[in-house]
């Protein structure tokens, strides 16, 4: 069993390296969004299947931020890099405020009905261009 509290120093630099803040879009970094303390524990609970490999991979990283932090995470290899980056990004996108900024409402239930007039107009234009299949002589072929 791993305890997330034992990994906080590593998580802080890893999360910040993968998701720094961005002035242009006004998006916060992983730490500013609350990944280490609030969101990552939730993500790890949701994906308890990935949690052991996440911590195992973290253990292979230095405790404190190395000089080339992204290279250090990449050096873990594709599988571990994937586990770490997927869980950090997955945790980041659990946050409501982040999603609001992106204009992502989540996978909503929608009850719109189709506009038949629009659909008919659109398909009539396609039909007017004629058929696009090859008509073949029917009857049994050689099998």
């Amino acid at each position: 069993m791993y305890n997330i509290d034992d990994f906080q120093t590593r998580i802080a630099w890893v999360a910040e390296t993968l998701i720094p803040s961005d002035v242009k879009s006004g998006m916060p970094s992983a730490t500013e969004a609350g990944v280490p303390g609030r969101l990552l524990p939730r993500a790890l609970k949701e994906r308890d299947d990935l949690a052991p490999s996440f911590f195992k991979a973290l253990l292979r990283l230095p405790e404190t931020r190395p000089r080339d932090p992204l290279d250090a995470i990449r050096a873990l290899g594709a599988d571990d890099f994937h586990t770490i980056s997927f869980l950090i990004a997955g945790a980041y996108f659990l946050d409501e405020a982040i999603n609001r900024k992106l204009r992502y409402p989540g996978q909503e239930a929608l009850y719109e009905t189709p506009d038949y007039d629009e659909i008919m107009e659109a398909i009539e234009r396609v039909q007017a261009r004629g058929s696009v299949y090859v008509d073949v002589p029917e009857g049994r072929g050689s099998a």
């Binding site: 390296t17 993968l18 998701i19 720094p20 961005d22 242009k24 879009s25 998006m27 992204l70 990449r74 890099f81 980056s85 997927f86 990004a89 997955g90 996108f93 982040i98 999603n99 992106l102 992502y104 989540g106 996978q107």
Partner: peptide, 25 residues
């Protein structure tokens, strides 16, 4: 898909270069 899919591999191919300063853009 949603935001997490934008930094995944499908249908973008590899996702090795979407981290760090490339993440938000």
């Amino acid at each position: 898909g949603g935001p997490l899919a934008t930094v995944g591999t499908w249908p973008w191919g590899g996702n090795g270069d979407v981290w760090g300063e490339n993440f938000h853009p």
